[in-house]
Design a protein around this nucleic acid. Structure first.
Length: 401
RNA sequence: GGGGAGAUAGCAAAGUGGCCAAAUGCAUCAGACUGUAAAUCUGCCGACUUCGGUCUUCGAAGGUUCGAAUCCUUCUCUCCCCA
């Protein structure tokens, strides 16, 4: 096991806040002296969402803990998943059955194992304890909290002041998450800064239960490709770990420059020193920002796929967007008849959701066939050999008979 | 338990009998400029269309009217105040 100082250095990278650092050091010291690993908690929501780079920020940190010799406990929130949507946007979410949960967990693991070491990990379901609780146990659990405590959570406070709906069960959510910490005797809980409240609730509950409080380690919430909102699937600004190499490369290239340092710090192993020099190098003209972004894309694609695929993706990207050529591996669509209306074709091939949209795209000059702009949305095409249909900047389709 | 306000497109928010397929802002999408960056500018932004129009939308279901997002009834949901 590495020294406390050495561990601390690794742990602190990218972390924006620790509650509290003193306690963390104490825990590390104790663990080092007794040569017993710390228990690091990670909760996963088995609702089936694909993992994106935003999730990997925390996973990367967990991986580092594994490498430092600590123990990861993966808590599957199967019971919590049965209650509803914590964001409160949907009142009720259909109860997931066991089979679906197991499937989703497998799906999660398949993706998470691109980062984590499965051998140094334990998996538990929180239904194991919540499923056995009596109503009185629940009352006891939640009676430790007051409304004022709940309103310390900005998220509740804001909505309360705005006068939007807050369901009571939403407030039980953080309590349940905190209770998970009690059950596994967590030493450290990781999370994005948006998890701060939940982690603190866990500390409080552990203390109430006579345990040492877990240390909260907060990582920044990764912004999505739009550079404004946190990365999430519903905002469509995400980069999924299962994205194809070319897609992943392209999406990374589309992030705003300002995001690069954050991505470098949280998603790669590039030394902080180098990252901190980047803005200066860009400013002085020593390096083009596009170059740095391509390197970033190389690293990330290489991590989730392979170096060879990253190289390929990069070449394809340069080919299409720098040289304006047609990509080599594009989807193919077979038309049933030789003669077909352009709009009809676009809808049939899924490049437009409706005829109206197809018209719009054509009228606005976003559609071309074999590099020739189409301006007439009524155009009848005669398909004999192969033609390349291009919609917008990045959608290509090979049309064959 | 009593009183009041509200539900409009992806989101926010106007509209309170015909000029409303519904102002405006944001987002999406397309175009220009670039580095598939940002910023900026332009356009589009329910569906269908012979491009003249036509059809379906304003929480849900009914009703009044020549005509309803707008009025009435019931229902569902939300918020506020008082107790």
């Amino acid at each position: 096991m590495k020294s406390v100082e050495a561990q601390l250095e690794v742990i602190k990278r990218g972390v924006v806040d620790i509650v509290s650092e003193t306690e963390l050091i104490q825990k590390l010291k104790k663990s080092f002296e007794k040569n017993t690993p710390l228990t690091i908690k990670l909760v996963i929501d088995p609702t089936g969402a694909d993992i994106h780079l935003g999730h990997t920020v925390v996973l990367n940190k967990l991986r580092q803990f594994q490498e430092l010799g600590h123990k990861i406990v993966l808590i599957i929130g199967d019971y919590t998943a049965m209650i509803g949507d914590p964001s409160g946007r949907l009142a009720e979410r259909p109860q997931l059955d066991r089979e679906t949960i197991l499937k989703n967990v497998e799906n999660f693991k398949q993706q998470a194992m691109k980062i984590l070491d499965g051998d140094k990990m334990e998996t538990v379901y929180n239904g194991a304890w919540f499923g056995k609780m009596e109503f009185m146990d629940v009352i006891k659990m939640i009676s430790k909290f007051t409304l004022a405590q709940m309103l310390e959570h900005d998220y509740f406070d804001k909505r309360f002041k705005e006068g939007t709906a807050i369901s009571l069960h939403e407030m039980i959510y953080p309590i349940m998450q905190g209770y998970d910490s009690v059950m596994i005797k967590a030493d450290i809980e990781l999370g994005g800064t948006d998890q701060r409240f939940n982690v603190i609730v866990g500390r409080y509950l552990q203390r109430e239960s006579g345990q040492d409080s877990q240390v909260g380690l907060f990582l920044p919430v990764l912004l999505g490709t739009d550079g404004k909102n946190k990365m999430s699937k519903s905002l469509k600004n995400y980069i999924g770990v299962n994205d194809a190499p070319a897609d992943m490369f392209g999406k990374i290239m589309s992030i705003p420059d300002e995001l690069m340092p954050q991505y470098y710090e949280l998603l790669t192993q590039v030394p902080l020193k180098e990252i901190n020099e980047m803005p200066e190098e860009i400013k002085s003209g020593k390096v083009h920002p596009m170059q740095l972004k391509k390197n970033l894309a190389d690293i990330i694609v290489g991590k989730f796929h392979s170096d060879a695929e990253a190289k390929q993706a990069r070449a394809a990207f340069e080919n299409v967007f720098s040289k304006g050529e047609i990509p080599t591996d594009i989807m193919e669509y077979k038309v049933p008849t030789g003669k077909i209306n352009i709009s009809t074709l676009m809808v049939a091939a899924g490049l437009a959701t409706s005829n109206s949209e197809a018209r719009r795209l054509i009228t606005q000059g976003g559609v071309s066939i074999n590099d020739e702009k189409i301006s007439d949305f009524k155009k009848e095409l005669e398909i004999n050999g192969e033609v390349i249909l291009k919609v917008g900047k990045r959608k290509f389709l090979k049309i064959t008979r």
